[in-house]
Structure formats: structure tokens, C-alpha cells
Amino acid sequence: MTKSELVERLSLSNDELNKKEAELVVNTIFDSIGNALVGGDRVEIRGFGYFSIRLRDAREARNPKSGEVVKIPRKKTPFFKTGKELRERVNS
């Protein structure tokens, strides 16, 4: 499902929201999650899962074309773990 499909479903399932308002709601939710992660916070949605930031250590890798060693710096990556209810729904 794409973001535009999500907006479409939200506007169809709720008579009070038109497409523009539904898009604003979806954008606000995504922006809020992103801003919380940038601030180092964890975002938990009960029954769905949680988003957090994981720190990846610096490492060395090889360029497959030339074989030369490349240093990859330490970096933060977003991480999502599913909640129990979502996992059970997917597996049933």
C-alpha cells in the first residue's frame, strides 16, 4: 500500500474527511513519527509495533568492483519491531 492509497482509504472510510484533510492527517502522523525519531525518542503504537533508532558501529567493507577497503562511518538507522497483535494477525 502506498501513501496515496492510504489517504484514499482514509477519506473513503470517514465521511467527514475529504482527500485533502485525510492527506494532512497522514502527513502529520508520519512527520510526528519522523520528528520523534530525529529527537532520539521511541514511538510505540500499541498493537502495531514500535519505531526506534539503532546505532550501527563503524566498519570496514570492500568495494566489489575494485576490491579496495572502504571505511563506513558510524550511523543511526531507523528500526521497526512489530507488536504481538499485528504479528498474530499476519500469521493467522
Rank of each mutant, 00 (worst) to 15 (best):
Y50F: 12
V69F: 08
R62T: 08
L6W: 02
T77V: 15
I45D: 02
R56G: 05
L37V: 05
V25H: 01
G40Y: 07
E68Y: 13
L24P: 02
I45L: 03
S32E: 06
E21A: 07
E5H: 07
N27F: 04
E68L: 12
V26A: 02
K81G: 09
G83R: 00
L37N: 06
D57V: 13
K71L: 09
E16Y: 05
R42H: 15
P78E: 08
G40K: 06
L17K: 00
R9V: 02
K75C: 13
R46M: 01
I53G: 01
E21F: 00
D15A: 12
R56W: 06
E5F: 07
F30C: 11
V70E: 04
T28V: 09
N35Q: 14
L6F: 04
S32I: 02
A58N: 08
K19V: 07
E8M: 02
K3M: 04
E88T: 10
N18S: 05
G49T: 10
R42S: 15
I53P: 03
A58D: 10
D41I: 07
S66G: 06
G34L: 12
L17R: 00
V70A: 04
L6R: 03
E5Q: 05
P64M: 12
E68S: 15
L37G: 00
R59G: 03
E5G: 04
D15I: 11
K71R: 14
E8G: 04
V26N: 03
S92Q: 14
G47E: 04
T2E: 03
F48H: 02
L55N: 14
L10R: 01
S11C: 09
K81W: 11
L55A: 10
E23Q: 13
G47V: 05
R87N: 09
T2L: 06
R59I: 01
K75A: 15
G34Q: 13
V43Q: 05
R54Y: 13
V26H: 02
E85S: 14
R87P: 05
L24C: 10
K71H: 11
